[in-house]
Design a protein around this nucleic acid. Structure first.
Lengths: 199, 199
DNA sequence: CACCTAACGCAAGTGGCCTTGCGTTAAGGT
DNA sequence: ACCTTAACGCAAGGCCACTTGCGTTAGGTG
């Protein structure tokens, strides 16, 4: 059974609706990157998308839901996950890519938006899946290292990535303090030593 | 020379002004803990403090400044910094205390508020000093360990605390995902091994 | 092609956040 | 005790996010 057939109302995923949706989401990402989360408003998004304000309110309801949907839709291009055959190189490169992304207006906006809307249980769950999918991709770095014997068998992939990424995320969120160029590399080194234990 | 004398306007730190200030700040902390950052409003704070709305707006101006001031004023009681003579015990206890604090409504509110207002340069600087003072206190744990020879001489105190604390902060900020009971201890262990390097 | 209706545009209206002008209260000095 | 004025209360108003009712457009179907 398909879920579309279970829908009591006949939806119209065709032409105009899809066009409007795409225009609004891309406009939302642009406004988010330019104005920031605080000044992010439905009116600006609607104007840029060439769509009436009412339409946006009816389809998404609140700012938070719109931001979330825009993130999910625009998350096709993510942070690249390197695979050079060396854990240290991979982790350092990934940390640097994340740091660079968080330094962009869009990156800052994503982090802020998630922090904002994590009060709502429903939205929090959606963000959870968002982060989860991201972390699973990067988890391949650690898993491959375990397979090659570079890291012990019982290594906690999630803990490793949290140790590597959250310092960067925290600086971007609470942050004021910039990310030094050598920070990603130092993080990767320290985390690796920590995972290997006192060998 | 005292800085009060340099002020061109005669301030009145006495009786009523101080009473109003204290009432508003405590009311702000209460509303912040109960309603969260998103629903935090000047009207609710003024009503609870038994003060007119206008007074709050004139003294603080915006929500962000009020929240920041309330945090700074209420930061006298902070997270205790243990000193048991063992780094691992100290770090684990501190991480647990931080985790417990971030689990409370007030703790969540503090983190969210900081993430929200970090767009404004002036407020970001004020928050920076806030975090800085907190981290310096906890830095004593690492410094003492270096003095005892438990950690190498070149240990980066700031990096150590960031590795220990930011995973917890990130979970509280973006988070949905609860902090497991054993997470603080595992963080302390892994970070310690990382700092000691491949010895 | 003709019909149905989901989805959009338009415009008026609501409520909450924030500002402003003016009169009143009380702190602090003489 | 008296005066000055910082700080507060009150009330009116502006601004902006958000809602709602209704008419119109255009996707989808027989």
């Amino acid at each position: 059974m398909t879920e579309e057939d279970a829908d009591p109302i006949r939806r119209r995923p065709g032409g105009r609706a899809a066009r409007v949706r795409q225009a609004v989401l891309t406009a939302a990402l642009e406004v988010l990157a330019e104005e920031g989360v605080a000044r992010f408003g439905i009116a600006a998004v609607a104007a840029r998308a060439g769509v009436n304000e009412t339409t946006v309110y009816r389809r998404w309801g609140t700012r938070e839901k719109l931001v979330l949907d825009a993130m999910l839709a625009g998350s096709t291009e993510g942070i690249p996950v390197p695979d050079t055959g060396d854990v240290r190189t991979d982790l350092a490169a990934f940390a640097r890519a994340l740091a660079d992304y968080l330094a962009t207006p869009a990156g800052r906006a994503v982090a802020r938006a998630a922090a904002l809307s994590s009060d709502d249980p429903g939205l929090a769950e959606a963000w959870e899946t968002f982060w989860q999918s991201r972390l699973e991709l990067a988890g391949a770095i650690v898993d491959r290292a375990v397979g090659r014997g570079e890291l012990p068998a019982g290594t906690d992939t999630g803990l490793a990535l949290e140790l590597l990424c959250s310092p960067l995320q925290t600086r971007a969120l609470l942050g004021h303090r910039p990310i030094e160029p050598d920070l990603p590399e130092r993080l990767a080194d320290t985390v690796l030593d920590g995972l290997r234990g006192r060998a």
